[in-house]
């Protein structure tokens, strides 16, 4: 597949130029876009690749991919502002009202980019309906996350399926549906599986760092922290004490090494890795079952590897 990052970037800049007229809005939009471009627009590339895999031709898809990226950028800004755990992102360094305003403007720009695209209006309409439904799923998952209402594995999986996987489904399915096909259930299923695997991978990574993103310090229930909280070994009781508020952050400040040891010795790391791999293997099986996708497997994997 062609290098579509510059083409998606061009469309994103064009949309900003066309619809933002106030200088400061344009400047902040470009600043945030520059930050986003460091990640090579994986969601937009998923859209382009799925469009091509299912027979789509022409350049109109880049505008749609820009729409996908604007939506993802907006949700990322909201997420980072809510969690306050990404201090180095451009939107975290900007004044809060400005960052919030830009996120809202990007959401609207996403919708406008779809409406400005050159696709058949009925395809645009059904695609936009799908996009909104996936975004609403993500909103439900995000609320579960914000309220920290995950209490067991079932609610954890429900939360990540809605919060993370829905956005990957949205990116892939936009490409499929703009070719004129309807909802593709196997694409949806493999997007969910790889989205869940990626989120579990992130949860494992976030557990090993010792900063504002650490799920243990944040008392956040994830697959691994839940596993530890169920651990009956007495020497890990301090972990439960911290989660239940009997110990505070100062009490555990020097326990990083102990925590890492506990994760390893209890089998929590192994458990997380095995569950992650189960979802990833299922993703691979499903991918192989769709002929249009199987032949482009390597390209799809190369995008997801950078997720």
């Amino acid at each position: 597949m062609e290098d579509c990052v510059p083409k998606i970037e061009f469309e994103m800049r064009e949309m900003v130029k066309r619809h933002f007229t106030v200088d400061s809005l344009i400047q902040y939009a470009y600043l945030f876009l520059m930050d986003r471009l460091k990640e090579q627009l994986p969601f937009g590339r998923l859209t382009v690749l799925h469009y091509r895999m299912f027979g789509g031709e022409g350049a109109a898809v880049y505008r749609a991919a820009a729409a996908v990226e604007f939506l993802i950028l907006a949700t990322d800004i909201f997420d980072d502002l809510q969690d306050q755990d990404a201090p180095k992102q451009a939107w975290s360094e900007a004044p809060l009202p400005i960052a919030l305003h830009l996120a809202a403007a990007f959401l609207t720009l996403s919708q406008q980019a779809m409406m400005d695209s050159e696709f058949d209006s009925s395809h645009v309409q059904t695609t936009m309906k799908m996009m909104n439904l996936q975004l609403l799923q993500a909103a439900n998952g995000q609320m579960m996350d914000l309220m920290n209402v995950v209490s067991d594995e079932q609610s954890y999986f429900q939360s990540i399926k809605q919060k993370s996987a829905a956005l990957i489904v949205h990116a892939c399915m936009t490409g499929v549906m703009l070719t004129g096909r309807g909802w593709h259930p196997i694409v949806a299923e493999y997007a969910v599986e790889v989205g869940m695997a990626a989120q579990i991978k992130n949860d494992i990574r976030d557990l090993l760092r010792w900063d504002e993103k650490n799920d243990f310090l944040q008392r956040k229930k994830t697959l691994l922290t839940l596993y530890m909280l169920e651990d009956a070994v007495d020497q890990h009781n301090w972990i439960r004490d911290y989660f239940e508020g009997r110990l505070n952050e100062a009490d555990v400040a020097d326990k990083r090494g102990l925590l890492e040891e506990a994760y390893e010795k209890s089998g929590a790391m192994l458990y997380g890795s095995v569950v992650m791999r189960t979802h990833y293997n299922r993703f691979m099986e499903l991918l192989e079952s769709v002929p249009e996708v199987a032949v482009h497997k390597e390209m799809l994997l190369s995008i997801l590897a950078k997720e």
Binding site: A197, K201, I204, R205, L208, E264, G267, M269, L270, S273, V274, M276, R277, Y280, N281
Partner: peptide, 18 residues
């Protein structure tokens, strides 16, 4: 698969990326 990857890289558990 997870154990095989771990055995190839290190004796104790470590993070396995997919």
């Amino acid at each position: 698969e997870t154990l095989s990857i771990q055995a190839d890289k290190k004796d104790n558990y470590q993070l396995v990326y997919w």
